[in-house]
């Protein structure tokens, strides 16, 4: 059982994530967008969206720090487990709360603003459930840890080694199996989130426009860029066309 959960599933998830994203990028560049609904409503969006997005960016940084950097390294530079733990809980908890409040505002807005709700697909709804679940479960692990005080489980001795071991293709199933249930559930839901990622609007995160900072303001492009006849239509720019409203 543990082997399947912590030794096989992560790789399945990774395959789906990578292959799915590549496939979608090739097949559906036109659908690759944030599908912003700001045109319909922006008062709540203006509060909820930055709260959520900046929160989740911090959460990502926190996760990377906690999972990738081994405990021995932080101790080598003189940060004791206790100090690290308190900091992680404090900042992680704060970022997590921001994210949660942000997404709750966004979900509320989605449900109560007529046009926004109309523009919500089933795909979106599923994605919201998984995303909210992952965030809530993550906060729950934090809460449990805070409740346990100094007795709290040190995930950097269980989850993190397992995470790192995945990348050297020698999954350390046992350490993950030793982690408390709340960590396991959070990890599972997290994996589910990444597995559905390529098939939801979340893909927009993969094309975060950081290169904007480095490109020239004015973009010239020649028709010559177009490929020769006979190549596939999808490889080149085609004018817009959307599903017409049923008549």
């Amino acid at each position: 059982m543990s082997t399947v959960l912590w030794g096989v599933l992560p790789y399945l998830m990774l395959v789906v994530l990578v292959a799915g994203s590549l496939w979608r990028y090739r097949y559906d560049k036109f659908g690759w967008t944030t599908r912003s609904s700001q045109l319909y409503e922006s008062r709540l969006l203006r509060i909820g969206s930055p709260l959520f997005h900046f929160g989740i960016l911090l959460v990502v940084v926190g996760h990377l720090g906690g999972l990738v950097v081994p405990e021995s390294w932080t101790e080598a530079v003189g940060v004791s487990e206790g100090v690290y733990h308190v900091n992680a809980l404090l900042f992680g908890g704060l970022a997590g709360v921001c994210t949660l409040v942000g997404i709750l505002i966004l979900v509320y807005r989605r449900r109560t603003t007529g046009p926004v709700f109309m523009a919500t697909t089933r795909n979106d709804k599923l994605m919201y459930v998984v995303l909210v679940a992952a965030i809530v479960l993550g906060l729950w692990t934090t809460l449990v840890s805070v409740g346990a005080g100094s007795e709290a489980h040190n995930y950097r001795e269980t989850v993190s080694p397992w995470f790192r071991s995945l990348f050297v293709l020698q999954p350390d199933v046992d350490s993950m199996a030793a982690a408390p249930a709340q960590f396991q559930v959070h990890t599972l839901v997290g994996m589910l989130l990444f597995a559905i990622w390529p098939f939801t609007r979340l893909v927009h995160a993969f094309t975060a426009p950081v290169h904007y900072l480095f490109r020239p303001y004015i973009v010239y492009r020649s028709r010559d860029r177009r490929t020769a006849p006979g190549s596939r239509a999808r490889d080149r720019w085609a004018p817009v066309g959307t599903h017409d409203r049923d008549r």
Partner: peptide, 25 residues
């Protein structure tokens, strides 16, 4: 380019699975 190579498969005006406008334009 788009009119010569365009393959008029079924679903040309259908909605893709990822929302109203996804799929091939």
């Amino acid at each position: 380019g788009c009119s010569l190579d365009y393959d008029e498969g079924p679903g040309m005006y259908e909605s893709g699975p990822y929302g109203e406008a996804s799929g091939r334009p």
